[in-house]
Amino acid sequence: MLIPSAYRQTPSEQGCYNGQIVMGGALSQMASALAQLSHCKFLGEAHYQVSHTTYSTLWGAEQFGARLNGGTRVRTTYKTYEYNFLYQSTALSERLALLMVYGADYSAGNVSIKAEARATGSNSYTGTVLDYGIEFTAPTYLTALSTPLGEAVPSDQWAFTGCRSVAVGNPLSTDPLDRPRPLVIPSANRGELLNIKITVNSLSLVAVHIYDVYQLQVTP
């Protein structure tokens, strides 16, 4: 079945009254409108902004602006630096696209972002691995500048897994990680609270957007 993305006009209510002949078209429009809601509008999404310290040698701690001077500070501690993004998935969370905002500093070391999906049994950060995931590296997938300024302030860049349906190399393998693709969630874990664990190197994470991938066609 094709899944519409638009709010199409629904059939006339009067057409459903007693004495009216209900045509297949009316039911088809209802089916289409409901499929749009279940398989498009109410797909899961989460939009994380990552707040960083605002302290600046220029103006102290005015506590405004998460990112100073149009850029993101890459601190020396951002080496194998872990974040755990909690994501309440839906029954239709088959694949998760990740769209991230970052600033990277090549001079601080090798630049990378690793992302994996984990279950959250017992609220643990180290729950069962559902997809060992992917790795973005520079310069192929990330834009990193060499700014030898100590804790550098590079401008924001975007990293995206894409939404395409890519064959998973091996979701239960840790080495090598796949190149960027949507994370794959096993059917048994869809609808659960998931942990999207992201590990960064020489890179400051500014925002992480997580999306259930919309599919244009679904087999009933």
């Binding site: 993305s5 638009a6 709010y7 199409r8 006009q9 749009q36 498009c40 509008k41 999404e45 939009h47 902004q49 707040s51 960083h52 310290t53 605002t54 302290y55 701690a61 005015e62 506590q63 405004f64 602006g65 998460a66 990112r67 100073l68 001077n69 149009g70 850029g71 993101t72 769209l99 905002v101 401008s155 924001d156 975007w158 500014v206 925002a207 957007h209 919309y214």
Partner: peptide, 24 residues
């Protein structure tokens, strides 16, 4: 103890969510 408490300098280029808004 210096978290952002206000939207401010440096935020504008990427302080948004790319989000679907449906036709109709």
């Amino acid at each position: 103890a210096a978290p952002p408490r206000a939207i401010g300098p440096g935020d504008l280029p990427t302080f948004y969510s790319p989000a679907a808004v449906f036709s109709g």
